[in-house]
Write a protein that binds this DNA or RNA. Structure first.
Lengths: 342, 342
DNA sequence: CTGAAAGCGCTTACAG
DNA sequence: CTGAAAGCGCTTACAG
């Protein structure tokens, strides 16, 4: 048992009723200014802390939001999911909510055991971070609790989700190359491999189209075999002046390869990547890249879930968040300064 | 208002008292086996969820632990702090606790504003992840709530803490080199720079001492100037066969440098690092390194805080956790296989 | 084994 | 403006 100061203690101290204390501390109508001030001061002096549990009992809301992440994402230090937590937390905090994080064990996911925070009614809403098995997602959906999926989406379930926009991001970074005067731009990646690589390819294509640059087949350079292993790149006869790589690892290796071949980056060729992973920072030169906008995504998910809690029928659907550009050193502008001015 | 199933509903359904339902569901003494089973089944069927808030009200415990981290650690993708969360969460989960994470804003840290989770009585204990300003730590200490510091320690305050053991880790990895037959082992790092580098140097020294290897001054190679910028390494005339680097970045660059100089790693020289950072993985060859044992540290902090909540006077002091070795490819054994057998 | 009563700390109508 | 009463959902003694 904690020996905490309660409203009762303050009421006794000041010879007023508990109701009045509650109103004063809660900023509600119906207390004289002077008395209110006295109560607030007294509470402060006595080290009073609100017992939000008691309030929650009355209201039926815990003012907590749960974030669950599958155990399969726990571990590898390259993982970026944990970076979301802090942004979600900040967003929730601003809205008066706290964040409860729970790792969903592989067994619980498999056996469809609901997260404890939920079964103990500790949370008013749930953010699911990253992919989760379809049956589990369906289980969650059947619970009468607002849910937002973060960085994950499945057509077979109809839950609001916040995802990154690969297509847009690729379009943007390719456009930057074009604006920098590049017209011979290759795309490196297996455009049949995953839907996100496909989207990145299509964003690249859109940027070309928009600038009237023809898509050349030999400028679509495959980087992996059917098993997903990276392969030697087959460069076209006429070297492009810029490469859009489907991720930073590929960009990193490309830069090494180009150097071997006698091409310097960015002086001879420009290179851009995706993901803003450590490879982009560790590379020399550092790689200009598009990366998931963690902050924007986390804060959006935080806002959505709180809004959903407040208005139970609120729907958002699948919301895409633009990626962030990280301008570094691997792109050279072919446009002369005086040309730019004209 | 949620329209949740409560014990009252179950009681009505089964024509028993709420007390009996509470006992049955709580696994307490004093209910007939048969009735108990019936109640549990009924609760299941009706989709009953415990309202832990109500329980907490009675008991005075929230069964939540807060984790706060200063905003100054939020952002850089190299940060490893977020990786702690999942381990802490797992540890707390096993003990029946949930984890509430809160980022402490720079303003709140500066203005000594207590974390909301605390001032709203949402948590029974607090884990502080990473360094926090001394005044703030003192403020927290003055609160009547159990606290554990994680990866941070300050002599001026007397709060239980869980930190990584640089000294031991360095001793261990150096010993491994020695066991592999190396005797000419250099240490690379500015031994006056930080206390953790100092500890790593001393661990290295201890391993030498233990094996009767003399510490040679020219084998302590400084790697940075007074402003902390990395400098050219001054290699000794007689090249060592192994290098203990004070971190992975240094090890990474050393390997490149050695290659330039015509030394191959690990065939001509072995190299080990510290931190298990991405540099150790990205390097070619990958670097054998000692790294913070995130899992062990997180779980230890989780256990400590719960124990402290349960027994209010429990003290641990400063607890060091051994680092983990990550054996990779940058060490060559000089011991022949048949020698090993003898 | 079963259950009526009291209480955890607060808030929300509703009276005065 | 001030406050007595009821209630949020549960648990803990204590009777029967």
């Amino acid at each position: 048992m904690k020996s905490n100061v309660t409203m009762k203690d303050i009421a006794k101290e000041l010879n007023v009723s508990i109701v009045t204390v509650s109103k004063a501390l809660g900023g509600k109508e119906g207390v004289g200014e002077e008395l209110k001030k006295k109560i607030v001061e007294c509470a402060d002096k006595m080290g009073y802390r609100l017992n939000s549990l008691a309030r929650s009992m009355k209201e039926g809301y815990s003012y907590n939001v749960g974030v669950i992440v599958s155990e399969k994402f726990v571990g590898p230090p390259q993982a970026f999911y944990p970076l979301f937590y802090q942004y979600i937390s900040q967003s929730l905090g601003e809205q008066g909510y706290s964040m409860i994080i729970q790792v969903l064990s592989l067994q619980d996911e498999e056996n469809l055991v609901l997260p404890r925070a939920y079964s103990e009614s500790k949370i008013d809403g749930l953010i699911v971070l990253g992919q989760i098995s379809l049956p589990y997602a369906q289980l969650l959906q059947s619970c009468e609790i607002p849910i937002v999926l973060l960085d994950f989406y499945d057509e077979r379930i109809d839950i609001d989700s916040v995802v990154s926009d690969n297509f847009c991001g690729s379009y943007e970074i390719t456009s930057i190359l074009i604006k920098s005067g590049h017209r011979d731009i290759a795309f490196i990646g297996d455009i049949y491999a995953t839907s996100s690589i496909q989207d990145r390819f299509l964003g690249y294509y859109k940027a070309l189209l928009e600038s009237g640059i023809k898509l050349r087949e030999e400028y679509i350079i495959n980087d992996r075999d059917k098993e997903g292993r990276y392969i030697e790149l087959a460069f076209p006869d006429k070297m492009p002046t810029a490469f859009v790589c489907n991720n930073d690892v590929v960009a990193y290796n490309l830069i090494l390869k180009l150097r071997e071949m006698g091409f310097n980056v960015p002086d001879d060729c420009s290179v851009v990547g995706f993901d803003n992973s450590v490879h982009s920072v560790i590379s020399s030169p550092q790689i200009t890249t598009m990366g998931v906008n963690l902050e924007e995504m986390g804060k959006t998910a935080g806002k959505f879930i709180v809004n959903k809690i407040r208005k139970e029928n609120k729907r958002y659907g699948k919301v895409t968040i633009k990626e962030n550009i990280y301008q570094r050193e691997s792109v050279k502008s072919l446009v002369k300064i005086n040309e730019r001015l004209t």
